[in-house]
């Protein structure tokens, strides 16, 4: 943790190609989102769950590859988890009010 060096620069195996593949994946998922929105799933909850699931997968792709979390130390992954959990707590506990009013 103390070496202020390029700790990961050399591990970039995939290079340009991997970024292009990820981008292609993102575009495909965007297409799926749009297509899925046209399908009537008979449940508003299910629709939004699907939309959020796809958005989360896209986010994971961006964060993992584009934002280099794949190549970073455990520390960065932990910090990211702390942030995500915090947000889930905030929204989750708020719904203990809203959903039970």
């Amino acid at each position: 943790m103390h070496q202020p060096t390029h700790t990961h620069a050399d591990d970039h195996a995939g290079g340009y190609g991997i970024y292009l593949k990820v981008w292609l994946g993102l575009i495909v998922f965007t297409g799926i989102t749009v297509a899925a929105a046209g399908v009537d799933l008979n449940s508003a909850g299910l629709t939004i769950a699907l939309a959020l699931l796809i958005a989360s997968v896209k986010t994971a792709l961006v964060v993992y590859f584009f934002m280099h979390i794949k190549y970073e130390h455990l520390l960065f992954k932990l910090m990211l988890a702390v942030c995500a959990i915090t947000f889930v707590i905030f929204i989750g506990l708020t719904f203990f009010d809203i959903a039970y009013r």
Binding site: T86, I89, F90, L93, F96, D97, I98, A99, Y100, R101
Partner: peptide, 18 residues
């Protein structure tokens, strides 16, 4: 400390479950 903010709102009309 991040889990308890609702205790400021017991009389606000917040749900009983909360």
């Amino acid at each position: 400390g991040s889990l308890v903010w609702g205790h400021h709102m017991f009389t606000s009309g917040q749900s009983y479950t909360a």
